[in-house]
Amino acid sequence: MSNITNSLYDIGLLDDLARKKTFIHRIHPVMKLLTTIVYIVVLTSFEKHEVSAVLPFVFYPVFIISFAEIPVVPVLKRVLLVQPLIIGIGILNPLFDTYIVMLGNIAISRGWLTFLSILIKSSLVVMVSILLVATTGMDRVAVALRMLKIPKVFVLQLLLMYRYIWLLIEEGFRMAQAYSLRAPGQKGIKMNDLGSFLGQMLLRAFDRAQRVYQAMNLRGFTGEYNAGDVLKVRFRDVLYFVAWSLFFVIARIYNIAALIGALFTGVGR
């Protein structure tokens, strides 16, 4: 159950990082969200064998990590944790696509290129999603969602959920610890105990929801969520979005890596 504490650590870390005040942090959440989405869409629109053309997309996460003072190791660790699934599916490519292509003088099966391309793309995509939260924070992500006309009910309960994850994870962890102390040498919780274990937790969650609802009611909540003023979008926020989007699109159309390579190797097309 160590993944429980890991999750707490991850949420806590991202939350700490989001409280920094670099210029990246101050860019409007909507623009950051949109830039991230453009990034992901452009990156995933590449052909499945493409490897070199994808590489210039490394610049965006590097830019954010550097300017927003994000520690590299924890972010990379998260990225690596997600990879096994991708590898599981991606590794089938070399098996199914054994078509041989020439890269200069090296003969290589096309499946490996697809595999490599998937690995790079998935790492980058996971990284920019995490960087988005690490430089924005859940509260401002919610502001962005509101401004993008996502239903209020959804945003409010998303915020409540984010708020109570911390509490329930701690509670679940304590219960699991207490259980394992009385059930030595057992892997996880016995199926027979599962109903009452999770059921108890659920009942407590229900009671808590009831009290939270009362607390909201006492402060005038009537089902309407008032998020306060929306943040104004400044010129530099738009500039940030436009400039990066432009870069992504250019990098999609021209293989920048190959152009640089051509410059250095002197091989023209």
Binding site: Q157, M161, I169, F206
Partner: peptide
Amino acid sequence: MDESKIPLMGVMGAFVFTAQMINFSI
């Protein structure tokens, strides 16, 4: 018009999130 459902959804979501991390033996 059952606004009490909103906190319930939030807390239930957090519960499921936690429950997904608790392993049980098959």
